[in-house]
């Protein structure tokens, strides 16, 4: 079964990029594929270039040196992303040993510093805790600290706050922004919430059924969205200035990856559809230098 269909995505140094789309459209798979984390039964084609180096087809040993050190990833469910049988300190130490060669006292001091960095109070004590002794928000902070241990160029945050409650969500996003400003690390924020992405990134890629359908700076997306799906997402969003408005969710559901329409995969739900839409999947085309859309009527 084919989950992705030609993802063309570029992240520039230090940039904050959002990746939005409904559940199942392939946001996570895109990054797991790039890092070779889909398991041995998945086939990945194309090229994933890191500073000119292609990661697709590279030996696992080489990918392991990229993971965590160049590209770190944090996940949706922080509490189950940490191993329940090992202490926080040990799991942090593992990353520090791996990426920075730190051991013993030096590793512990650095682990403490990292927990401080992600604003976990009482770091020393927390190092001795097990994940189940921490709240979900705290565990996500630990995951972020662990990602920072490798001093990565890029942090991919895969829906880092969906499992957390609203106030904690805001805190985690703020923390990510703060770290990015301080360290110059690039951030890819995966979310199904365009609002969250708008507040935390500069550019957004909208995904639909395994394809990127629109790629543009945040302002452009809000002021002049071109793809009907993006417009649909915007219509489903409450006004940022608080004005009340009826939300109009997009009718219909995402097609199953094994049952995609022959032409534009959004066609069954699109209100601008014409016969030509069903001929072949529309190719992404540039409208402006920084604005790319895959829709024949855009």
């Amino acid at each position: 079964m084919r989950a992705l269909h030609g993802i063309d995505l570029e992240v520039r140094r230090g940039e904050a990029l959002g990746l939005v789309g409904e559940s199942g459209c392939g946001k996570s798979v895109t990054w797991l594929a790039a890092l070779g984390l889909l398991g041995s039964r998945a086939r990945v084609g194309g090229a994933v270039r890191l500073e000119g180096r292609d990661l697709v087809g590279t030996p696992v040993a080489e990918l392991e040196r990229v993971r965590g050190r160049h590209i770190a990833m944090i996940f949706q469910d922080p509490s189950s992303s940490l191993n329940p049988v090992h202490r926080i300190g040990r799991q942090l130490g593992e990353a520090l040993k791996l990426h920075r060669g730190l051991d013993g006292g030096a590793a512990e001091a650095e682990a403490r510093r990292l927990l401080d960095r992600v604003h976990i109070a009482d770091a020393q004590r927390r190092l001795g805790d097990y994940p189940h002794e921490l709240s979900g928000g705290m565990n996500q902070r630990v995951m972020i600290a662990m990602a920072l241990a490798g001093q990565p160029d890029l942090l991919v945050a895969d829906e880092p706050t969906t499992a957390l409650d609203a106030t904690v969500q805001a805190q985690i996003l703020e923390l990510l922004g703060e770290i990015r400003r301080d360290s110059g690390m690039a951030l890819v924020l995966i979310s199904h919430d365009l609002g969250v992405v708008a507040e935390n990134t500069d550019r957004v890629c909208v995904m639909y059924a395994g394809r990127i359908v629109e790629d543009a700076p945040i302002d452009t997306v809000f002021e002049a969205p071109a793809h009907p799906y993006t417009k649909g997402l915007l219509a489903a969003l409450p006004e940022l200035d608080g004005a009340r408005r009826v939300l109009t969710p997009i009718a219909g559901v995402v097609p199953e990856p094994w049952n995609l329409p022959k032409g534009c995969s959004f066609a069954p739900r699109c209100d601008r559809r014409v016969d030509a839409c069903e001929a072949a999947p529309p190719l992404p085309t540039l409208r402006e230098a920084d604005h790319r859309v895959a829709c024949i009527r855009a």
Binding site: L32, L35, L37, A61, E64, R65, V66, R67, G68, R69, A72, M73, F75, D77, S80, S81, L82, N83, P84, E94, A95, L98, H99, M143, M146, A147, A149, G150
Partner: peptide, 12 residues
């Protein structure tokens, strides 16, 4: 998930 997370952090 913690297995994938451990791989993602670069562990062999």
């Amino acid at each position: 998930p913690y297995i994938r997370a451990a791989s993602a952090k670069g562990l062999q």
